[in-house]
Design a protein around this nucleic acid. Structure first.
Lengths: 249, 249
DNA sequence: ACAGGACATTGACCCAAATCAAGATGACTA
DNA sequence: TAGTCATCTTGATTTGGGTCAATGTCCTGT
């Protein structure tokens, strides 16, 4: 929400940088943070590839430039639940912890802008505005996790699917500083299985409910990874929570 | 985990203060924060009483001194999901936001140590260590929310109940700087309905699974609000996740 | 000690989503 | 062009937990 230069990721497009969105990106901030320029590096992952495994050492933090990744947690017997969804401008990594708590998997081709952890933590200690921005982002993530709790605990399969589409549509629109309404197209860089892991369902149920929503005219499918929503309002109603999300938060 | 004086809540008992645990408590920090002394005040709530309603104005932040409270979210049709569980030493309120996002209800008698929001935000801006501690706490809360996602998305009713008991036992032990093992007693300051809202179940299912666990010898009931666990290890196995939680995190 | 009310347990039945099992689609390779 | 493999859809069946409906239990106040 701050309009002046934020050092941690914001959703503002960045003019002077190969990265499309302002992120943890020394380049964007080179005037004040030139000394960090050489700490920045990029990593590219293909769909399905792991960024880190839970309990692996993780010596960097990162910001998503493009693509999508999921944080995933597992029970011994293999039951899997996604516990975080990383979209462009999202932050990855926990300062102060060098061991990954979750497995991070690219669900589509993924580009990360990375920083070594140690200098990042130093930055955090020395720059109150950086720390403040990270706190803000963490609180937003906590709010998102709480909406997700409501989704997992109390929504029907149909509502869950609709909710996921609403979330993706809102996130996509937010990057373009727009508000989704009317007829929109949502790209779905997730397999049915990844959707199931996000929603606490099986992939069969996801597939069935997608078909149901299609038959009900709420969505149209353009291939498997692209959804056309004739009326965003109707989709929001299907999602159960009628809160309109506020002004482009 | 820092052993030196932390300004935001820690789990360390406080020697020179009526509050049992170090919390957002000017008293504990009066040597360096004397000017905030008059900003501190206490509030007491009875079981069932609301601290704030979602969308109400909230002009304070607080730390739980004793008792338990739940953050709760609702769908239009009344379906309710608890999205936060506040135990002693937990922090309540979002700096930078003056409107409550969730309804906060005392599930047992509750004592809060409160601070007016404005001076607290000033403190946050001026004291990097306070901000750092709050970031730390928020990240811990996010981790807890992610375990909760796994619970809601993938665990059976029986595992959910066992998991809740494990969480309560661990939290209670952590305040006493112990690690739960062997035969322990867990106090349960929640109605069956509150447990259901936490776990994404109905109160009938909660009741049934409590009975099942009792019949299986995993727990014994001492009244309705007190559970005896003959073997904590056995309970952890019932909870599904075998991770032993690490050293008193 | 008793009555009332909130909270909890138990039972019978039902349904949404899981499970098991074929097929269909579509992208890539030989 | 055909073949292979991953992904997705659809169908048949099962089941865990929800719903509805009685009881039971334990505080609290009189």
């Amino acid at each position: 929400m701050t309009t002046d230069a934020a050092i941690i990721a914001t959703q503002a497009p960045c003019e002077n940088c190969p990265i499309r969105y302002r992120a943890v990106c020394a380049h964007c901030e080179s005037e004040e943070l030139g000394e960090l320029e050489d700490m920045k590096f990029y990593r590219r992952y293909e769909a399905g590839q792991n960024v880190v495994w839970a309990a692996d050492r993780m010596d960097f933090v990162a910001s998503v430039v493009s693509g999508m990744a999921g944080l995933t947690q597992q029970l011994e017997d293999g039951r899997t639940q996604m516990v975080g969804l990383l979209l462009p401008s999202d932050f990855l990594g926990r300062p102060g912890r060098d061991v990954a708590a979750y497995t991070v998997t690219a669900t589509s081709d993924l580009l990360l802008c990375c920083f070594r952890r140690k200098p990042f933590e130093k930055l955090l200690r020395e720059r109150p505005r950086v720390a403040g921005r990270l706190l803000e982002m963490t609180l937003d993530e906590l709010d998102a996790a709480r909406d997700w709790l409501l989704l997992l605990g109390r929504k029907s399969a149909r509502e869950k699917i609709a909710s996921l589409l609403v979330i993706l549509a809102r996130r996509e629109a937010a990057l373009l500083r727009r508000r989704p309404e009317g007829r929109i197209v949502v790209s779905l860089p997730l397999t049915r299985e990844a959707m199931a892991d996000y929603l606490g369902l099986t992939l069969e149920t996801v597939s069935r409910q997608m078909s149901t929503l299609k038959r009900a005219g709420v969505i149209e499918l353009d291939g498997k990874r692209r959804v056309i929503v004739p009326s965003f309002g109707a989709l929001v109603i299907e999602s159960g929570d009628d809160s309109d999300g506020g002004p482009l938060s």
